[in-house]
C-alpha cells in the first residue's frame, strides 16, 4: 500500500563538495558565483525542471518571448541555489543570518492554548527550511511530512534532518501516506508541517491560482477540518544578504458546515491559501521554486 514517489535526483557528492569548499574559502557570495554556471547547465539539460518552471513563469510574467521566459527560469534556478547554500550555511552554524519574524506571537498562543497541536503548511517558496530554527522556541516537537530524501549527498550536506531532536520526519511513503502518525502527533499537541502546494499522487482540489485552475493537495486542510485544529501558513522570503522574513500571520481554520460533500467544503479554505501564495509571488516573483506544473491535470 505505501506509495513510492518518483522524484528526479539532482546534485551529487562532488558537486556539493565543491559548493561547500567555495563557501568555506570565499564565503556565501563566493559559493553563489558558481551558481551562474551551474544554472546554465540545468537550463540546457534539465528539461523536467525547465518545463515545471516555465509553467510558473508563463503565468507570472505573461506573453513574453522565448528568450525572456527562459531568462526568468535561469533567475529562478540561481535563486534556488542561493536558498540551498543559505540553508547549508545556517544549518552549519554560519553566523550573521537575521530573521524578521511576523506573527509568531499568534503561533505561540495557538500552540500553548490548545491541547491539540496544529498544522504548519509550508510551500515551495522562499526558504522554509531556514525558518525551522525559529520554531524551536515553541518547545514542541515539530514533525515534517515529507518524502524521505534518497539522495545521500543532499541528505548529508544540506543537513535535511539536522534541526536537532525537535524536528522529526513523518514519511509520506508509508501506509495511508503517514496520516495515522499525523493524527497521533496532532492529538499529542505537536506541530506537523505539511507541504501545501505539490499534490504528487494524493487527492487534490482545483483552486484559482495565478489566473488558472491549479490542483493543490487537500490533505492538510482535510486533516485540520477533521481534527478541528488550526492551519498556520509559513512563508519565508529572502530580503537581502543573510536576511530573511518569516511570516506566520496567515492562519486558516478549516471547518465542515455539514456532512455533505465534505471535500468540496474545503475548497474555500484552500482558496484562501492559494490567495496567500498568489500575493507572495506578486511580491517575490523569483522566490517561487515550485518547479511543477500544478495547473496541468494529468
Amino acid at each position: 500500500m505505501p506509495k513510492k514517489i518518483k522524484v528526479k535526483k539532482r546534485g551529487n557528492e562532488l558537486g556539493l563538495q565543491i559548493f561547500i569548499i567555495f563557501t568555506k574559502l570565499f564565503g556565501l557570495k563566493g559559493a553563489y558565483s558558481l551558481l551562474y554556471l551551474v544554472s546554465i547547465h540545468y537550463l540546457l539539460f534539465d528539461k523536467v525542471a525547465v518545463k515545471g518552471a516555465l509553467a510558473y513563469t508563463e503565468r507570472r510574467f505573461k506573453n513574453e518571448t522565448f528568450f525572456k521566459k527562459h531568462w526568468r527560469v535561469y533567475q529562478l534556478f540561481i535563486n534556488q541555489g542561493k536558498a540551498l547554500i543559505d540553508r547549508y550555511a545556517a544549518a552549519s552554524g554560519y553566523k550573521g543570518f537575521t530573521f524578521q519574524i511576523k506573527g509568531f506571537d499568534s503561533v505561540k498562543e495557538i500552540v500553548n492554548q490548545n491541547k491539540k497541536g496544529c498544522i504548519l503548511v509550508t510551500s515551495h517558496v522562499g526558504n522554509w527550511q531556514v525558518a525551522l530554527s525559529c520554531l524551536q522556541e515553541l518547545k514542541k516537537d515539530i514533525y515534517l511530512l515529507m518524502r524521505p530524501e534518497d539522495n545521500a549527498a543532499v541528505k548529508k550536506h544540506l543537513k535535511i534532518y539536522s534541526e536537532g531532536e525537535k524536528v522529526k520526519i513523518i514519511s509520506l511513503e508509508q501506509d495511508f501516506g503517514g496520516t495515522l502518525e499525523i493524527i497521533e502527533k496532532i492529538n499529542n499537541g505537536d506541530v506537523v508541517s505539511i507541504m501545501g502546494d505539490r499534490k504528487y499522487n494524493f487527492p487534490y482540489l482545483d483552486v484559482d491560482f495565478m489566473g488558472d485552475k491549479a490542483g493543490l493537495p487537500l490533505g492538510a486542510f482535510l486533516i485540520a477540518a477533521t481534527l478541528e485544529c488550526p492551519i498556520i501558513v509559513l512563508l519565508t522570503a529572502k530580503l537581502g544578504h543573510k536576511k530573511y522574513c518569516v511570516d506566520f500571520n496567515n492562519i486558516i481554520l478549516p471547518k465542515y458546515e455539514n456532512k455533505l460533500n465534505k471535500k468540496q467544503q474545503l475548497k474555500k479554505y484552500m482558496q484562501k491559501y492559494a490567495n496567500v501564495l498568489n500575493n507572495y509571488v506578486e511580491s517575490y516573483p523569483y522566490q517561487c521554486f515550485l518547479f511543477e506544473d500544478v495547473w496541468n491535470k494529468h
Partner: peptide, 22 residues
C-alpha cells in the same frame, strides 16, 4: 489515505478507540 483520517476520528468519537500503530 485521507479517508483513513475520517475513519480514525470516527472510531475515536463513536467508540473511544485510537489506532496508532501503522
Amino acid at each position: 489515505s485521507l479517508d483513513a483520517v475520517e475513519i480514525v476520528v470516527l472510531l475515536q468519537r463513536n467508540f473511544g478507540l485510537e489506532v496508532k500503530d501503522m
